[in-house]
Write a protein that binds this DNA or RNA. Structure first.
Length: 655
DNA sequence: CTCCCTTGCGCC
DNA sequence: AAAGGGCGCAAGGGAG
């Protein structure tokens, strides 16, 4: 696919929405509940000469919203697009597709193909965000596009009231919607035309997944709130137990929740040694750290510090991952949570999930309002990897959760990108990279470790060290940091000397990796951007001798690995989409290297084989022009809930 | 009281 | 000199 081509092949569309509360306008899952609805639908075809609009206002004071009438209008659009084989174009079209789903048009939605101007813009220009302040982030909104490219139209959205039902206001809204269509058309065409061919391919693969994400966002996830209550109570008991043994030492909830107060207690009152300080990048102010790693180190010598760590953890987990689930299901009113997948939410192309929407609520003083966060979902990407926590998310009745995860994803892409012969060999069938690294570290025989890793303690520990090394050292981690991670996250005792040995052994074993680091940095400095195997790009420009140089170098190294992982995931989703539709399965959520599906119970056995076959044989050559030198395989797990996933074995599955 | 910034921390 | 990367969310603390 090259230039934009015949304008007649595209159709833009846009919904305006409202609700019984303003905030419901952005929550399409409330449409079936009657709490949200479309107020204006417009679609546009441009024939190269002039704009041809269709659509209409869907409610005002005189003509209240009629679900069936609105549905018929949307159906007309989707049917025409399907029959004429048009590409449907939107701006953040994932949202507008959710509205279509709200009108019960799923079959027609999936009969069509989509393109998204916002997505194309991101593919054209994305930069890493070294500035943590979200206010300074690049906006990719349609309004921002208009401000930048058509400044004479900037501010066309002011004066528009989405919730005023007077016929005059609705007429203005509808006219505004027409403008949105025109700008969407101009923006999408512009960004499509300026993309390089390989960027277009990456964008198209991603665009194919848009309806899958829209459906997942719309449907939400079912929460077993009884489990949530049990978990919440358990965490309350855990916290109380910890506090009981700590309160004689002056610990309170208020102190533990405050880093400043906790530092005073730990270091001034208890007189513990200060192992680490934090320094603000902005003000340069230092503070004595009370983070988890510090508490872990202190806890090796002092039981109280260990207790503080456990106490704080229980408090945090309860709020964020147990109570938040119940709160969200209550807010949504459908016993579901709707964490919203944001396609291309990161500069590396990986997804993010939003758990809340911005809204306003009553202020403390009468007649005032304040900004609040509406709990539409939960922090899916951060959910604790523990059965009790993940078990809260269950499959719908009649369905099974299936997980497919790309085996050793980052290790394999690093092997490919670095071309390191040892790494590549370790990705071949029958090899075990962690045993190999463990053998190198311990000075033992590789096959002895592999064969005895289950029974022999020495072999087991060696492999464990090898695993930490393989997982931690791919991206320039120091020996010191390795030790902290091993001790505080993997619970592996490690001296400074041992950490240095592992650090040294890693670079000695995979000599191609440090070479890749250097080459990648040099290349990026030269051309000013980094590229993935799927053709995705990120701009890296700035002062290579300045304070951001370490970050810029890291982007150069890291992006081809993480970004290619993202490409792989989108390609995987696009390739399994037709099969999922065939068997009545659907995409549920994503976790970077894992794809989670809801599959009808009686189709699980077949799907385990068929989907794995598709995924193990993805068309990298056709899609990216790249032939992997090693197998890129996927593992399959199944279960009744996220927390209940087990490795799938065809023999057991058949019983 | 509200808003903004920082710290800490969950995941891959 | 030393430095894994990518995120979003909860909570405290201080400015206004």
């Amino acid at each position: 696919m090259s230039e934009w081509g015949d304008d007649n092949n595209y159709l833009t569309f846009d919904w305006e929405t409202s609700g019984t509360k303003k905030e419901y306008a952005l929550q399409p899952w409330r449409i079936p509940q009657g709490r949200a609805w479309g107020t204006s639908l417009v679609w546009l075809r441009h024939d190269g000469e002039k704009n041809r609009f269709w659509g209409g206002v869907q409610d005002d004071e005189d003509n209240p919203h009629d679900y069936e009438r609105t549905r018929e209008l949307a159906k007309t659009m989707l049917t025409m697009a399907r029959d004429k084989k048009l590409t449907i174009v939107g701006w953040n079209v994932q949202f507008d597709i959710q509205v279509l789903l709200g009108y019960d048009l799923e079959e027609l939605v999936f009969d069509n193909k989509y393109l998204d101007g916002m997505l194309l813009w991101k593919h054209y220009f994305v930069e890493p965000e070294y500035d943590a302040n979200p206010k300074n982030r690049q906006s990719y909104s349609l309004k921002q596009f208009v401000r930048e490219f058509m400044p004479h139209h900037a501010g066309y959205e002011t004066e528009i009231d989405f919730h005023d039902r007077s016929p005059e206001a609705r007429a203005a809204l509808h006219a505004y919607n027409k403008k949105d269509n025109i700008f969407t058309y101009i923006g999408a065409r512009h960004y499509w035309n300026v993309l390089e061919p390989q960027q277009r391919r990456a964008a198209l693969a991603e665009a194919k997944t848009i309806p899958m994400f829209a459906r997942a966002n719309f449907q939400g996830l079912i929460v077993d709130t009884l489990s949530s209550h049990d978990l919440s109570n358990k965490l309350t008991r855990d916290a109380r137990r910890e506090l009981k043994s700590l309160q004689h030492h002056g610990v309170t909830e208020e102190i533990v929740r405050s880093p400043a107060k906790l530092a005073k207690l730990l270091y001034d009152q208890w007189g513990l040694p200060v192992l680490k300080e934090t320094r603000s990048k902005i003000t340069g102010v230092t503070a004595r750290s009370t983070d988890k790693e510090t508490l872990h180190e202190l806890g090796l010598e002092d039981e109280r510090a260990k207790g503080v760590r456990n106490y704080r953890e229980a408090l945090n987990l309860k709020t964020k991952f147990a109570d938040a689930m119940v709160k969200s299901t209550r807010y949504n009113g459908d016993f579901r949570v709707h964490p919203q997948a944001i396609i291309f939410g990161t500069y590396s192309g990986r997804l993010t999930y939003a758990s809340s929407q911005k809204g306003t609520g009553p202020g403390v003083r009468a007649g005032t309002t304040k900004n609040i966060l509406l709990p539409i979902g939960f922090a899916l990407h951060q959910m604790k990897n523990d059965k009790l926590f993940r078990g809260q998310v269950v499959a719908p009745v009649g369905f099974t959760v299936m997980e497919f995860d790309a085996a050793g994803q980052e290790f394999r892409w690093m092997a490919i990108k670095s071309g390191d012969e040892t790494m590549l060999q370790l990705c071949m069938p029958g090899e075990d990279a962690h045993s190999y690294m463990g053998a190198k570290i311990a000075g033992r025989d590789y096959h002895w470790i592999m064969e005895n890793k289950e029974e022999d303690k020495e072999a087991k520990n060696a492999r464990k060290s090898g695993k930490v090394g393989n997982l931690s050292l791919q991206y320039r981690t120091s020996a010191r940091k390795l030790r902290v991670v091993a001790r505080s996250q993997y619970d592996i005792p490690m001296t400074e000397g041992e950490a240095k040995v592992i650090h040294f052994t890693y670079q000695k074993t995979y000599t191609g990796v440090p070479k890749y680091w250097r080459a990648q940095i040099a290349l990026t400095r030269k051309i000013g951007y980094v590229e993935t195997l799927g053709g995705r790009r990120v701009q890296v420009v700035g002062d290579w001798g300045g304070p951001l140089s370490w970050s810029m170098e890291s982007t150069s190294i890291n992006y081809p690995i993480q970004g290619t992982g993202a490409d792989q995931k989108y390609l995987a989703m696009a390739c399994i989409a037709p099969y999922l539709r065939d068997i009545g399965a659907y995409f549920a959520w994503d976790l970077h290297d894992g794809i989670y599906l809801f599959v009808p119970n009686d189709k699980v056995q077949r799907a385990a084989v068929d989907i794995k076959y598709i995924l193990d044989n993805l068309p990298y050559k056709r899609a990216w022009g790249f032939s992997p030198p090693i197998p890129l395989t996927w593992d399959c797990k199944t279960g009744p809930s996220w927390g209940g996933l087990r490795d799938y074995h065809p023999d057991k599955g058949a019983k």
